[in-house]
Design a protein around this nucleic acid. Structure first.
Length: 199
DNA sequence: CGACCGATCCTC
DNA sequence: AGGATCGGTCGT
């Protein structure tokens, strides 16, 4: 997937939920020395500050970790959970709010051998079917935190043909503490795609 | 500076 | 169903 197909700043600067949904079917491209890995995004979630209690930037909380969410749209927000697992988000929405789209799962398209090397598993169904599984397979770590996905050549998101698959909205995973935001349908996935996380 | 806990994954 | 595992965050 050539770099000229990369998603523009304008794409990310629209309404956060629209962007989070629109990312489904797009291609994540990860170039490494040994080759290229490409995955089709099949599952996403939106986190929208300041009101969303599941957002790290809830109440417009600005810390060293969350500061990226207040910057340029289209930049990567990468954080660690449970000490070892990385999660990959993109900063989205209009500039006056801080919101991100979390990439929860992708379908392996190209460079499956490279992914398998980074994350040795028996079945390809287990390769990228979760936010941290996908980061492991694609070698996405904190080194890319704040990277501009509109300019970076080693990690970017590109468009492809029209998406005709059906999109399902549901509640987000792993945020039971979010009180009244616990049940908002801000998780989106491609219907019947086997690479969607089991949650 | 100590305590708490998590936008997950893996192995029972 | 439960443990791993460690840095971000916040209260003292």
């Amino acid at each position: 997937m050539a770099f000229h197909n990369v998603l523009s700043r304008h794409f990310y600067e629209r309404d956060p939920l629209t962007v989070t949904k629109s990312l489904l079917g797009k291609l994540i491209v990860r170039k490494v020395k040994r080759g290229v890995m490409i995955g089709k995004i099949v599952e996403t979630e939106a986190y929208i500050a300041p009101h969303d209690k599941a957002s790290h930037a809830y109440g417009n909380r600005k810390t060293e970790r969350t500061i990226v969410q207040f910057g340029e749209r289209g930049c990567a927000y990468i954080f660690k959970v449970y000490g070892r697992n990385h999660c990959f988000c993109v900063v989205v929405g209009p500039k006056y709010i801080s919101a991100v789209a979390l990439i929860r799962a992708v379908e392996p398209i190209e460079g499956i051998e490279l992914m398998m090397k980074n994350r040795p598993v028996k079945s390809t169904f287990d390769l990228t079917s979760g936010p941290s599984k996908f980061c492991q397979a694609f070698k996405i770590t904190s080194e890319f935190n704040s990277a501009d996905l509109c300019r970076n050549r080693e990690l970017y998101i590109a468009k492809r043909g029209k998406n005709r698959e059906k999109i399902i909205g549901s509640i987000r995973i792993g945020i039971d503490y979010a009180e009244e935001y616990r049940n908002v349908p801000w998780r989106f996935y491609i219907k019947d795609n086997i690479f969607v996380s089991k949650g």
